[in-house]
Amino acid sequence: MIEKESKNDKIGIYDCIFYNGISGTYEMFRLLKRYCFNGTVVFFDERSFDADIIDELMFITPKNFEVFPGLEIKVDSLSRLKRKISDYRDLVDIIAVNGGDDKVNRMVSRERYIDILRNTDQGRGIDHITAKFAAENGVMIDFCINNLINNKRSLPALLGKMRKNLMLIKKYGGKTILSSGGTDKFGVKPYRQMIALSKFIGMDRYDGFESFKNIYSRVGKNKKYRDGRLVSEGIEIIS
């Protein structure tokens, strides 16, 4: 059932943006709050990642708005991927991998410690095997509106790839994420406009809202794992 969309109702929708300096990120927080988002994941790349910056971001977070630190990593081999996961797992709430290449997409979809696979539409898209592995291992596939808006190649081709990816993910029961992927205040979009755009890639209204909520459920799960409350899938220490 779709929740009401009025400003008073808390529908729990979360976006993903990229860190762009303290002032730039703060501007994006303010806009996202105005657009009725409940929070956001701020992705850092490996160069800009710093635990002090995360503390500073928490300090500038507006009231009634949640911010979760995330990390986007770029890898080309499995050993590097494993090493980076072990390095950063406890430091951030969400780990995403910049995909695009078929080999990387397949490798990441087999890794259960990865939360999000991004930019799957940049290369040739994902195949049915990758979609199946991603669904089995709980790797969520990101559909980034920023890729759609700032694409340098053909828009119809990109939309076609996204539609094919979504069809495969739906078929194998995987989870999706809808994110603005904004790097500045112009890249952040209201959720209704994002849902309207997602209709072009085959998402309906319900799927769109679910995609906004998936990120929060994953953050909660990761926090429970980190605190030791969640032993494994389905086994949780209550008290």
């Binding site: 509106i145 808006i149 890249g187 952040v188």
Partner: peptide, 21 residues
């Protein structure tokens, strides 16, 4: 459809913009 169209506008006359409904 119009919401989606307004969402993809990111530049007008080489100036960065965003249109919010």
């Amino acid at each position: 459809t119009l919401r989606a169209v307004l969402a993809i506008i990111n530049k007008i006359d080489n100036k960065k913009v965003a249109i919010n409904v």
